[in-house]
């Protein structure tokens, strides 16, 4: 049983008039409460896969099963309802929110859209969500642009878990953060996974971060899967040339840590 099963996914774009496959015949599965890392150099197709899986763009070929239902044939209200179970955290937490929004509005939206709590009950739910991600409930009335980058990413995680998803796609979710904040956010993600049994599709170009959180890894090269396997094993003994290059790009201290 898998939460997400992707098979033969292909997405083509045009570059200089010629078609090229940004994602080329990619297949993978993610189990419940599992973290699958998607690594690869810039432009290898990681974000395109994230957007395909979330139905933000449509593939040219392939199949996506989410919670054992054909996700690509869903549309309209059925698709919107199913989206509650499949959430996302973006790289830039400032760009990910309406620039006019307050923290309360950002967290109220998913509760309102999916009718999760009666209106009168929502302030309490919002406070609980904030506390769940390690933030002060008093933050609710602040504007998104007033709080720090780390706080914003915690709000993004709070919004993602508001609808009790089974899978969260994280596209470079910690790449823009300071090292110390990054560690705290990774801790939070691991804790949420243990408590709520959420699976992650964890996208990053940073193998150090991946080794800290991922169970399995896929390394992409120009839209194709170059190698895959147990995260620690692949990072310790990369076989493909992209894999070796990504390992070589890790800071030495991190690389040598057991």
């Amino acid at each position: 049983m898998s939460v997400l099963a992707v098979s033969n996914l292909t997405k083509r774009y045009h570059r200089g008039g010629k078609p090229f496959a940004a994602v080329d015949d990619v297949s993978f599965e993610i189990g419940p409460a599992e973290t699958l890392a998607l690594a690869g150099p810039s432009g290898s197709g990681k974000s395109t896969i994230a957007r395909l899986v979330l139905r933000l763009i449509e593939p040219d070929a392939g199949r996506i099963d989410f919670e054992d239902a054909d996700f690509l044939t869903m549309s309209g209200a059925a698709l919107r309802a199913r989206r509650a179970r499949l959430q996302m955290v973006f790289q830039d937490p400032l760009a990910a929110f309406n620039p006019r929004a307050t923290v309360a509005r950002v967290l109220n939206d998913p509760l309102r859209v999916h009718g999760i709590a009666p209106r009168a009950d929502r302030p309490r739910r919002i406070a609980a969500l904030l506390e769940r991600v390690g933030l002060d409930a008093g933050l609710a009335q602040r504007a998104i642009h007033e709080i720090s980058g780390g706080q914003r990413q915690r709000v993004a995680i709070a919004r993602a878990i508001a609808t009790r998803p089974s899978l969260i796609v994280l596209d470079e979710a910690v790449s823009a953060l300071d090292v110390s904040v990054r560690g705290q956010i990774l801790e939070l993600l691991l804790d949420l996974q243990r408590q709520e049994r959420i699976a992650y599709l964890f996208i990053s170009h940073d193998l150090g971060v991946i080794r800290a959180v991922a169970h399995r890894i896929f390394i992409l090269d120009a839209g194709r899967i170059a190698e895959s396997g147990d995260a620690r094993a692949v990072i310790a003994y990369p076989q493909s040339s992209v894999g070796k290059a990504l390992v070589a790009a890790m800071p030495k201290l991190v690389r040598d840590r057991p």
């Binding site: 989206r83 509650a84 959430q87 973006f90 929110f97 939206d109 919004r159």
Partner: peptide, 8 residues
Amino acid sequence: AGARVIGM
């Protein structure tokens, strides 16, 4: 994209 993801 975020608004679409939450099902708005």
